[in-house]
Design a binder for these strands. Structure first.
Length: 584
RNA sequence: GCCCCCGUAGCUCAGUGGAUAGAGCACCGGCCUCCGGAGCCGGGUGCGCAGGUUCGAGUCCUGCCGGGGGCGCCA
């Protein structure tokens, strides 16, 4: 039964298609999955009939035909046909595509619906260590976490950013003593110039070389844990100076993290005894070699013995597992989170899985709350080994970002126009260089290791930030050149040329792509979408004259397509935390 | 020794159990009185190996091989 065309709001054409197919399959067998996929034979194909046929004991083609007969697709598809062993091939109607683009264009959200219901999501990311430089490992966590925060926020979820910085533990004894040795003023000066690692190394050197220093450091740790006011004050100096340094990097990077998002490990100190007590009360705690542990089922060590999560060390101190458990409890109970995302490197997989398991056992992590390890791989150099400086040291994030901007500026200078304003070039270089670094990180499937390669990430070709930014800037230049505003939002385009139709098909996938990124926590799918949209656009622009279109109607239609594409590119980049310059 | 992740084209990477596995780079060849050539169009190579599950496997399972990581009191 086809509905009449044009009356309904269809902000997300592909969702509508999926819903209609689900209904058609449900008529044949309740709950049957249409298995809707992109197709190279048509626009889409529904493969669900094959699995269903098996279940029903009927021939697949017959099932597929039954689905097609019962499907309400008349207004969406111009062709629906059963093919091969029982595939349902779907070709969208040009009218439906044009209507969808019109609805998308009229919508400030470009067809992306707010998630219903909205969820409270805690995203744990970045997590650098006080008195240490941020390095490439923090880069991945920070960039991926920021993109997820933006995507979830755009979908209407209530996102709580948590920067779980390492601000506690035995090293602080030696750091504080080193601070005292230098004198507060001199120490703060050294820290403020940004060389946190040098400070740490010096402290470490004293610790290793001088037994007296070692002893002072130990006593200082005890004082710190006992909340001695003067010791806390000195510790706070270190924390504040580090948070300030982190914020400089975050600002350069253009991520949403703020000092108030810092919830350091120390924030849970007061709760750690309760954590142990609750575990004890629930009978989960086992004392083993003096340490108090929980042995979650399913985890074994090298001898095949149960693997402990050490909550309290034999010396009475709390392990980081205790802190992580306290954080889970806090996020669920106090913050009311429905979903917890941990943007943490893959090596910590087992630790996190054990924490989740223990939190489930203890009742701190109810079934209704999802805890997900958003794992990512290492950053490698072009030699395939861990990314390091030529001297073999870790690469400071601040230096890396500076180099990105410098390289981008050089690339712009090489090809830039004469009339360029140096200040603007500088600004664009920042957007380009930082964008390139972020995009390169986000564009590969995050669980893989990824190769950090300046030349590749700054190339204006392929799945890169500059390529997507360039496509956007090029579109914006059309309107500058024409000295015209884009047509009214919601202008319904004509889809005549195959390239126009291909562009339309690319555009309508935006809402589903964003939803998929939020669900899977895989930002690379948005990168994939954007680079494909950009290349589909350039093919369109190559073939279809816009400003010199044959008729005014066609010109307006194509300008509307250009505008919608530019808006989707800019919105998509924004969701990745990447700027979309007007010109470059 | 056990556990986890990864292995797709020469290189960098996509690929939610579906039909003939896709991009970009590099290489070759076209398209320029070109709305931004930083472009477009075309050209060929590949799922580490061996089994298994399935109507159907790059995808799921098992075992190998290769790379990386983890494996009690660091965080």
């Amino acid at each position: 039964m086809a509905r009449g065309g044009g009356e309904w709001a269809m902000p997300d054409l592909l969702q509508t298609l999926a819903d209609r197919l689900a209904a058609a399959f449900a008529q044949v067998a309740p709950g049957a999955d249409p298995v809707l996929r992109r197709s190279d034979r048509a626009d889409f194909q529904a493969n669900g009939a094959l699995a269903l046929a098996k279940r029903l004991g009927r021939p697949p083609q017959e099932v597929a035909e039954a689905v097609v007969r019962g499907a309400d697709l008349g207004d969406l598809c111009e062709r629906v046909e059963v093919s091969g062993p029982g595939f349902v091939n779907l070709t969208l109607a040009a009218d439906a595509l044009a209507e969808a683009l019109s609805t998308m264009g009229a919508d400030d959200r470009l067809g992306v619906a707010r998630s219903e219901p909205a969820e409270r999501v805690v995203v744990d990311y970045s997590a650098p260590n006080v008195a240490k430089e941020m390095h490439v490992g923090h880069l991945r966590s920070t960039i991926i976490g920021d993109a997820l925060v933006r995507v979830l926020g755009f979908l209407g979820h209530e996102v709580i950013r948590e920067n779980h910085v390492g601000d506690w533990g035995t090293p602080f004894g030696m750091l504080i003593e080193h601070l005292l040795d230098l004198g507060e003023a001199a120490a703060l000066k050294e820290l403020s110039v940004g060389d946190l690692d040098a400070f740490y190394r010096e402290a470490r050197a004293s610790f290793d070389a001088d037994p007296a220093f070692r002893e002072r450091s130990r006593r200082r740790v005890v004082l710190l844990q006992a909340k001695d006011p003067e010791t806390l004050r000195l510790w706070q100096l270190l924390v504040a100076e580090s948070v300030r340094a982190f914020q400089e990097v975050y600002d350069t990077l253009g991520v949403l993290l703020r000092p108030e998002d810092v919830v350091g490990e120390s924030a849970y100190n007061d709760q750690l005894p309760e954590i142990v007590a609750e575990l004890e009360a629930k009978g989960l705690l086992v004392e083993d070699q003096g340490a108090r542990c929980v042995f979650p089922p399913g985890f074994t060590n090298r001898e095949g013995q149960p693997l402990p999560l050490i909550v309290q060390k034999s010396d009475g101190g709390f392990g980081y597992a205790a802190t992580d458990l306290a954080a889970i409890r806090d996020r669920v109970q106090r913050l009311g989170a429905r979903r917890l995302l941990y943007v943490v490197g893959a090596p910590q997989a087992q630790h996190l899985q054990m924490c989740f398991a223990v939190a489930r056992l203890a009742g701190w992590l109810p079934e209704a709350v999802d805890a997900e390890h958003v794992a990512f791989g290492s950053v490698l150099g072009t030699d395939g080994k861990m990314f390091r400086t030529r001297a073999g040291g870790t690469v400071k994030l601040a230096d890396l970002l500076q180099e990105a901007v410098a390289r981008a500026e050089a690339a712009l200078a090489e090809r830039g126009q004469e009339d360029e304003d140096p200040a603007e070039r500088r600004a664009v270089a920042r957007q380009l260089g930082i964008g390139a670094v972020k995009y390169a990180d986000l564009a590969t499937e995050r669980t893989r290791d990824y190769v950090f390669d300046w030349n590749r990430m700054l190339a204006f070709e392929g799945n890169t930030g500059p390529y997507v930014q360039y496509a956007h800037a090029r579109i914006r230049s059309i309107f500058r050149r024409a000295a015209t505003e884009p047509p009214p939002r919601g202008t319904r385009p004509l889809l005549e040329a195959p390239e126009e139709r291909a562009l339309a098909l690319a555009l309508v996938a935006f809402p589903q792509t964003v939803a998929e990124v939020a669900r899977s926590a895989f930002p690379h799918r948005l990168c994939q979408f954007l680079s494909e949209l950009a290349s589909t656009f350039t093919a369109f622009y190559e073939t279809c004259p816009v400003l010199r279109a044959e008729t005014e109607e066609r010109r307006q239609s194509r300008l509307a397509l250009c505008d919608l594409t530019a808006r989707v590119l800019a919105q998509g980049l924004d969701l990745l935390g990447i700027a979309a310059p007007e010109r470059m």
